[in-house]
Design a protein around this nucleic acid. Structure first.
Lengths: 343, 343
DNA sequence: CTTGACCCTGACCCAAGGTCAGGCCCTAAC
DNA sequence: GTTAGGGCCTGACCTTGGGTCAGGGTCAAG
């Protein structure tokens, strides 16, 4: 019962080349050779080949199959769980991509077929997002999924704000202020209240000029909104401050606005990772928080107290800020630990 | 706004080598070079890169992406449907494999952990099946899925038959006959009544000696069953035949038994493919059917009529045969067309 | 004796880059 | 001035699982 290579190949539905390959890499060496050099496969070789094919069908690479034979310590359950896990990952990944493509296809079916070139620029944006956000974060960015409704809302808002800015209306006026508050509220909503997402959005917006032109939000426009939004907050704080304190705040508040989201993001990460507020890492965050706060509140504890009072009295101050009670609690504890340490 | 290769790579989360590669294969050639030979990527290059990455994320190969750019005739919908179809296929395939592995794993959890070597021989059988059956057919082979119950049933039956055979009991005796009828009925059940599956099973069994030793069914055993089963049919036919006719039948019936399944399989294929019975292909099948029938029924129309009468009177004759009314109807029409043609 | 079907080895090929090697360019620090 | 480090260049070899020759030997049938 010795088979030549071609016979074995036919019987197993393989090519001769494949068997040559297995021979070369030492996975299946025929147990005999004829005098003329022909490979002769015996019964045990055939059995081994079947086993190889079985493991291959499981998705193992030839190298892994070789390892299985080399050390018989490997248990089948290990192999199975491993391969199943791999398949699961593969399946979820493919399904996610499929869902994305199907969504895209759905949005294509309604309207006119656009030019490929137009779509490519849209896709350009998609990869940009991919670049800054993990798959997980993308799924949590409601902005993208909401599609139509949210997008129209944003387009309208951006248009209004740009109208005001281009007409020369100062951002401190009431109309820009109201739009800015709406802007931030929508942003909070569309980031699911997660400061990490908004920090990354800001980063992306800053680093991708192409994005700015595409969605129509230049850095100038963003600064305009930022100033208007800051003004809306400062108008409230002012009621609690002396003229001198208000002057200081007005000189520095706007510049700190963009620094908050990254810090909030880090605090949120720390909370999610169960970092203790009193730990060195927690205290470092508290220190940075305090520094940022002092940049517009100043060094005087009395003034700082006024800000805190304002914040407690006026819940409106928290609107559009991505800060919540959990984060405040964390920072309070971190600062307490900080004081303790210093004294 | 010209970026060096390292800068672009960092911004897009790629490696320098990847950009070199894209340059070499002409997918993304930087629009400028510095005096020192450095690649300089402009704004349009960046846009193109983003588009490349988007299409790549869809699962297109670099060659396909290049083709997209080369001829702008390709529509996005085409690409999307194509990729979705590919993903679907990928997903179903992975899911099917996963289900198989999970099933295997489940059957492992109950019992003791067997040796890897033992399992490999089991896997050997699995690939053997793979070799003879398509994935689709495997799923339709209830034999494999039923596992425990059916397998135990088969083991018991095989054991009983072997016991009789080894004790020297002639297959024509009543005990073997009854077991043979049971055998064929189970086979019909476990092939879902599909003659194509049983034809392939027979083929596999004949060509794989390893399989025979593994499941304990030698060709001798199979012939024993076949003879017993034939006997059970012939006893019925005999009641309708003269002594001479019966002698002819007894001399030839058993030898035709193994030729029926392949023919039935082809007829079934023809029906599924909507082949007309009166077409040349249908008539050819009718001719082969008739030839097979005449091998044990003889040439005399009168004798043949007796067989047909028997078949109509004794529904038991159809048990364990994979033939059904649809197939008889097809063959009847084919033969009618055949007669018409000859006259 | 030829022809066709097998067999052998050796070699190059694919996709999508990874990983050096050898050498040039530029900047900053000494 | 020079030297160290980092970035850039090209070229070349490596990966998986074989496909696809090329050049030459072997065997059986006609």
């Amino acid at each position: 019962m010795l088979l030549k290579v071609g016979e074995l190949a036919k019987r197993c539905g393989l090519t001769v080349r494949t068997l040559h390959h297995y021979d070369r890499i030492g996975l299946l060496t025929p147990s005999a050779r004829a005098d003329n050099g022909y490979r002769l496969y015996g019964r045990s070789d055939i059995a081994r080949l079947h086993q190889i094919l079985a493991l291959q069908r499981f998705g193992l690479s030839l190298a892994e199959i070789g390892a299985c034979f080399a050390q018989p310590g490997t248990s089948l359950t290990t192999i199975l769980t491993q391969q199943i896990a791999m398949l699961d990952q593969q399946i979820t990944q493919a399904s996610r991509l499929r869902a994305q493509l199907a969504g895209l296809q759905g949005s294509l079916l309604d309207g006119v077929e656009p030019e490929l070139a137009d779509w490519l620029t849209t896709l350009e944006l998609m990869t940009m997002y991919d670049n800054y956000f993990s798959q997980d974060e993308l799924a949590r960015l409601p902005m993208l999924g909401n599609g139509e409704a949210a997008e129209a809302q944003w387009r309208a808002l951006v248009g209004q704000v740009r109208g005001l800015m281009e007409s020369g209306v100062a951002p401190e006026h009431e109309a820009p202020r109201q739009l800015a508050v709406q802007w931030m509220s929508m942003l909070v909503r569309d980031t699911g209240g997660d400061p990490r997402l908004v920090a990354k959005l800001n980063l992306m917006h800053e680093q991708e000029p192409a994005l700015q032109t595409r969605i129509g939000i230049s850095t100038a426009l963003r600064d305009y909104v930022l100033r208007a939004f800051s003004e809306s907050k400062m108008l409230i704080y002012e009621k609690y401050l002396s003229a001198e304190e208000a002057r200081f705040m007005r000189a520095h508040y706007v510049q700190t606005a963009l620094d908050w989201p990254p810090l909030l993001a880090e605090v949120r990460d720390a909370i999610d990772a169960d970092v203790a507020p009193a730990s060195p890492q927690g205290i470092a965050l508290g220190r940075r928080w305090l520094a940022l706060f002092q940049r517009y509140a100043g060094d005087s504890p009395a003034t700082q107290l006024k800000f805190r009072t304002a914040m407690e009295q006026e819940p409106e101050l928290l609107a559009g800020t991505w800060a919540d009670d959990r984060m405040f609690a964390f920072i309070r504890q971190a600062m307490a630990a900080m004081m303790q340490q210093q004294s």
